[in-house]
Structure formats: C-alpha cells, structure tokens
Computed example of a mutant assay.
Amino acid sequence: MTAVIIKINDIVGRRSYNCDILFRVIDFQKIDGKNYAILYGEAFRLVADAPYEDLVIIDALQQAKFSEEYRTLEEQSLRLFTQDVNLLREKQEYEATGGYAVESSYFQIPGKVLHLDGDPVYLKKCMAVYEKIGVPVLGIHCNEKEMPMKIGELIDYYRPEILVITGHDAYSKAKGKLSDLNAYRHSKHFVMAVREARRKVPHLDQLVIFAGACQSHFESLIHAGANFASSPARVNIHALDPVYIVAKISFTPFMERINVWEVLRNTLTGEKGLGGIDTKGVLRTGMPYRPIKDE
C-alpha cells in the first residue's frame, strides 16, 4: 500500500487524540532526529507539534462534518450576541430620546478595535464577523513573537479604544509547571505585548485589552494589564471568542460597567477558557443626527 504523503496546508487529525480537533499543517521540523509537523487548529487557537506518523489526513466528507458542527456553534453564539447588541441599542435609543418623549435623531460611535492576530486565516474569519456586527476595526496579521515590537507604533497610528492580541498558543507539560510562563509557546510574547501597550495607555478604561489564545497563561496576562484574557482553566478557545468579547465592549455605553459573566456567557468557550475584570464600555451616543445632503 502506498504511503500517504502529508503536505503543508493539509487538514489532519492526531491518531493519539482520536482526531478530536482538526489541524492545518503549517511546517515540518526535525526534533531529536524525528520528523514532526507543526499544526494550527482549524477552529481553535491552538498550536501543536506531532510526530509525522501520528497524523491522519481528514477527507472532505469528515471536514464537512466538523465544519457543520463548528458553524452551528458559531451561529448560535452570533445569534445570542446580536440579541444582546439589539437590546443595548434599544436601551440607548430610549435614554437618548428621554423615554421616547421627544422625536430626536441621534448617532452612536462604537469603540474602535485594533486586532493583532498571529493567524491570517483566523483574522479573516474575525474580520467577517466584525463587519457583520458593525464594529469599526483594523486587522493586522502579525507573528506572535513580533507583537511586542510592533504594538506601540500601531497604537500611536490607529488610537484604538479596544486592543486584541491573539493568535496561537499551547501549554507543554514537558517544559514546566502550569504556573511557569516559559512552559507556554506564545504566552510570554502576549504578556510582553500587553506591557508595551500599557506603557502607551496605562489606564484600564482608556484602552481595553483582550489577550491570549488556547491554553494561555491567564494570570500573567491579567497582571500585565489585560482586561480580558485566556485561559483560566488552560483549555482551548474558539477562533471567534475574542470577537464576541470586544464587540460587547464596543457597544456598551462608556457610562456603564460590563459584568464579566454577561460578556462570557455567549462566547463559545465560556468561563473555563476566558476571564476578565470589571471594565467600562466604550460606546458614545450623540445628537442630533442630520446628514448633509449635497444639492
């Protein structure tokens, strides 16, 4: 029987994990004389390496099955989140018009998001959801190791109210204990990037930061200055979880504090994968709204 050759960008599963997660092959390396593949999760922000012989190519039919399961979860979360946003808008309209006592047009300025992502595929997915919801965003693909060097200049240029620092991460038991930051693939780079951002904007309510990916060192990210981070229980987080968190912040009025549980309840991962601290919203409402018409 001819051996199956696995190539870059093939979709694979790991035999040793019963193919529970779909991965995309992004590179091959030799480790201690053995061939390994470097893998990025297709729906989860997880990076892993696996021996070549542990990999199984996932055919189109199996991929479609996984994709349908993921899509159902994503649509459910998006539907619940959209309901939340609509309620926030109705509340704002009621307050802006004095309880509908006057007819007055108004406008809203949601918080601007700067989203740095270590994975261009995930960034594209996130940008599509931001656009669907109506969040103003600048998305930048940036290697996790380069984020600390680039974050300051990007903040100066874009002046965001919300910053997302994400990509791929993973904890390795072989490298140390759960409390050891060096036992994580990219957590230290996320931490350094958060610290650089806080040097630019120290106040937690002037720049709201989400940082982390799958299995990231939650406590270090919060102590570095993130408002929200992953992953308290060191579990995998879904690719779109950061979007749901920052979109909620973007559409919450700046005079209101965000209940952490209300932010987490409609994410795909929940409190095991995501957490945070009390934070103010960033939405601002103004009036009147009278668009100028060209004659």
Rank of each mutant, 00 (worst) to 15 (best):
C214N: 02
D84Q: 14
R198D: 05
G276V: 06
V263H: 00
I237V: 15
V121P: 02
L154K: 10
L55R: 03
G225H: 01
K272S: 12
I6Y: 13
A3R: 07
C19Y: 03
I277T: 13
K177D: 14
E74F: 11
M192V: 00
L240G: 05
H217E: 09
Y289N: 14
R15Y: 05
G33T: 03
I31Q: 06
L240T: 06
G13V: 04
V235W: 03
A247K: 01
R198L: 05
K112Y: 12
T166W: 00
L88P: 01
L178Q: 06
D117F: 03
Y94G: 01
T267S: 12
E262R: 08
R185Q: 13
F251M: 11
D49V: 08
C214M: 03
N143R: 12
L80E: 14
P291C: 02
A233I: 00
L274A: 10
V25F: 10
L207K: 02
E271P: 04
F107R: 05
G270P: 02
G225P: 00
C19L: 05
K7A: 09
V85M: 15
E256L: 06
T267Y: 08
L274S: 11
Y100F: 15
V113Y: 07
L78S: 10
A247L: 05
F66C: 11
G41H: 02
N236Q: 08
R24T: 14
V135P: 03
M149H: 14
A247P: 03
K124E: 15
R79M: 13
N86I: 13
M287I: 04
G111M: 01
V260G: 03
Q215T: 08
I26N: 10
Y157L: 15
T166D: 00
I249F: 09
G98S: 03
I245Q: 01
L204W: 09
D156H: 11
K7G: 03
H141P: 08
